[in-house]
Simulated scan of single mutants.
Amino acid sequence: MLRLHFTAQDLARVRVALLGPLAETELSLWNLQRRDAKALFGGWRARTGPLITGDGPDTARFLGSPRGELVDLFTLVGAAGRIDEGVERLRGAPGRRLRAEFAVVAGAPRRHAPWLAEVVDAGPRGVARLATALQDCHRVAVAPYWERIQQHLEAELARRGRLMVQGGVGALLDGLRPMAPVGTARAGGPRLSAAGPPGGRLPRGGALARAGPVGVLRTRTPAVRWPRGRHGAGGVPGPDQSR
């Protein structure tokens, strides 16, 4: 569990944004490995699973597992309106940041294809291969449904924007329940909890939190992300908390 403690400065910098097709592609690969919510996703999984070929299955298992682990590509690349934009940012991400993010995956108790060792080490060829695999997966898993996904996301973005207009940032944060419950820190400022490494904590001051709806997890499920840097790792909700 990660806890974000907000100052007035932090609250003024909270944003609501769409994460984009790359985020939807990663989450779709995670969803394909799940077995729950069959009424909602069973038909899509049956149609799409056989189309994930080549490096796609390796990529899916590398980026996330049905148990809930998920590589935080969202923070690495930021909100990207097109899949090409997202993968180009991934290819150009600093090796230090890539290694820091993939180190979590490298330590997970599951096996990966040999070519992913170069990805974990942020090798240019490995990262380029991962980016190409994500583009291929997007083409079959997300692109055919993108118009409907985008309509859902824009409607949800508008809804959360209205929450901010009508009730301020407090109403927006309160609307993230139950995925990210909001409490009050001992120092008096609001505290947002989200799934992450046990005992994780982001100190007050300088954080830019972004809340954004995602279309391939559950209906009206928000994701929360914040940048890496001096405050530690970025984060997204684990699947088991996104209900």
Rank of each mutant, 00 (worst) to 15 (best):
residue 215 G to P: 05
residue 122 A to N: 10
residue 221 T to I: 08
residue 31 N to D: 03
residue 105 V to Q: 08
residue 49 G to T: 13
residue 181 P to Y: 02
residue 166 Q to N: 08
residue 118 E to L: 12
residue 132 T to F: 09
residue 222 P to T: 11
residue 216 V to S: 06
residue 40 L to D: 14
residue 222 P to N: 04
residue 88 E to G: 03
residue 2 L to G: 06
residue 49 G to R: 14
residue 218 R to F: 09
residue 212 G to K: 05
residue 74 F to H: 13
residue 214 V to D: 02
residue 112 H to D: 05
residue 112 H to A: 07
residue 39 A to N: 12
residue 86 G to Q: 03
residue 233 A to T: 01
residue 238 G to Q: 09
residue 127 V to N: 07
residue 27 L to E: 14
residue 126 G to H: 11
residue 185 A to F: 00
residue 136 D to G: 02
residue 109 P to F: 04
residue 49 G to N: 01
residue 53 T to F: 03
residue 180 A to S: 14
residue 32 L to F: 09
residue 169 V to A: 09
residue 153 L to T: 07
residue 140 V to Y: 11
residue 98 L to M: 13
residue 89 R to P: 02
residue 111 R to V: 08
residue 119 V to T: 13
residue 149 I to M: 15
residue 183 G to Y: 03
residue 149 I to S: 09
residue 126 G to I: 11
residue 93 A to R: 05
residue 224 V to N: 00
residue 32 L to M: 12
residue 117 A to K: 15
residue 104 V to M: 01
residue 91 R to F: 10
residue 120 V to E: 13
residue 201 R to H: 12
residue 106 A to I: 01
residue 70 L to D: 10
residue 122 A to V: 09
residue 66 P to K: 10
residue 190 P to T: 03
residue 144 P to L: 08
residue 98 L to Q: 06
residue 93 A to H: 07
residue 124 P to W: 05
residue 96 R to I: 03
residue 68 G to D: 11
residue 176 L to S: 11
residue 150 Q to Y: 03
residue 177 R to P: 00
residue 58 D to S: 15
residue 109 P to D: 06
residue 141 A to M: 13
residue 110 R to K: 08
residue 123 G to H: 07
residue 149 I to N: 12
residue 194 A to H: 02
residue 144 P to Y: 05
residue 206 G to Q: 01
residue 243 R to S: 13
residue 190 P to H: 04
residue 208 L to R: 11
residue 134 L to H: 10
residue 224 V to L: 15
